[in-house]
């Protein structure tokens, strides 16, 4: 299928009735995408998706993104502005130090003349190097695969920023006022894409994905990679996709389709 990732497909993934139905199915699947890269193993699908208030994130879930580069318009940065708006990331006109949780990257192949544009954010690695180097345990991977900075423990040393091959993290250099209540952030700590954890925890799509859908782009698909019946898991099982710098063996939860590298 080379058609668009349709809005309806994504909406269906967030249909509570379907979720309940899926909860009853126990799937056993193990897909080896490349030697040594196992995307998902034995899972109990669905259950954890409709998480009740007061319950912890489940290791039976792995949140991920599938980004179809063919559907990403080089002139569009709706995902970036949605992220800025949602998380209150307004900068100071200083590109070198302003926060950047998601950015548009352009790549050009001089041999073929092909130019592509794609959004890059924290890749939510299964083996995150930022977590390995963090001296305080502030960098951590939540049970459902989302890589976060616990800013209560962050001392601002920025080792994680050095360790990240995707340059996905930012450091807050200035005092901040008027933060969003659901997205606290402050000077002296490192921050990055949280997959809009406040939204995901209440069954909503990350702001970038929603904005891409609203703009008719449909280039971003969010879902549970461990649920074999989810749209995202079915697509990565059926069509070739790749992880950026997959050779590093970090097993990112963000995958790309039609990326010519």
């Amino acid at each position: 299928m080379s058609g668009k990732m349709k809005h309806t497909g994504i909406a269906a993934e967030f249909n509570p009735a379907r979720r309940k139905f899926l909860g009853a199915i126990a799937g056993v699947a193990s897909v080896t995408l490349a030697p040594g890269v196992i995307l998902y193993g034995i899972t109990r699908s669905g259950d954890a998706r409709a998480r009740k208030p007061g319950t912890a994130a489940s290791p039976d879930v792995r949140w991920g993104l599938l980004i179809d580069v063919n559907h990403c318009d080089s002139g569009c940065d709706k995902c970036v502005s949605a992220c800025v708006e949602e998380n209150g990331l307004q900068g100071h006109g200083r590109p070198a130090t302003d926060p950047q949780w998601i950015r548009k990257v352009k790549i050009h192949d001089p041999d073929t003349g092909l130019s592509q544009s794609l959004p890059v954010m924290c890749q939510h690695c299964a083996e995150p190097p930022c977590v390995d180097v963090c001296p305080t345990g502030a960098s951590f991977k939540r049970a459902d695969g989302i890589v976060l900075v616990d800013r209560h423990r962050c001392i601002g040393c920025r080792y994680c920023m050095m360790a990240c091959p995707y340059k996905a993290r930012s450091f807050v250099h200035e005092e901040i006022e008027d933060q969003k209540t659901y997205a606290p952030r402050g000077k002296g700590t490192v921050e990055a894409c949280t997959l809009c954890i406040h939204r995901v925890d209440s069954d909503r799509l990350p702001a970038c994905v929603e904005a891409c859908n609203d703009a008719g782009g449909g280039a971003m698909l969010f879902g549970d990679l461990k649920d074999p019946n989810s749209e995202i898991a079915r697509r990565v099982a059926r069509y070739a996709s790749q992880q950026i710098r997959g050779d590093l063996g970090l097993d990112p939860g963000v995958r790309y389709r039609n990326l010519s590298t």
Binding site: R51, P53, G54, T55, A56, A57, F140, R142, A143, D144, L148, D150, H152, I197, D201, S202
Partner: peptide, 9 residues
């Protein structure tokens, strides 16, 4: 909340 994702308490 932050480490385990427990909300609504």
């Amino acid at each position: 909340t932050v480490r385990q994702g427990i909300r609504g308490k």
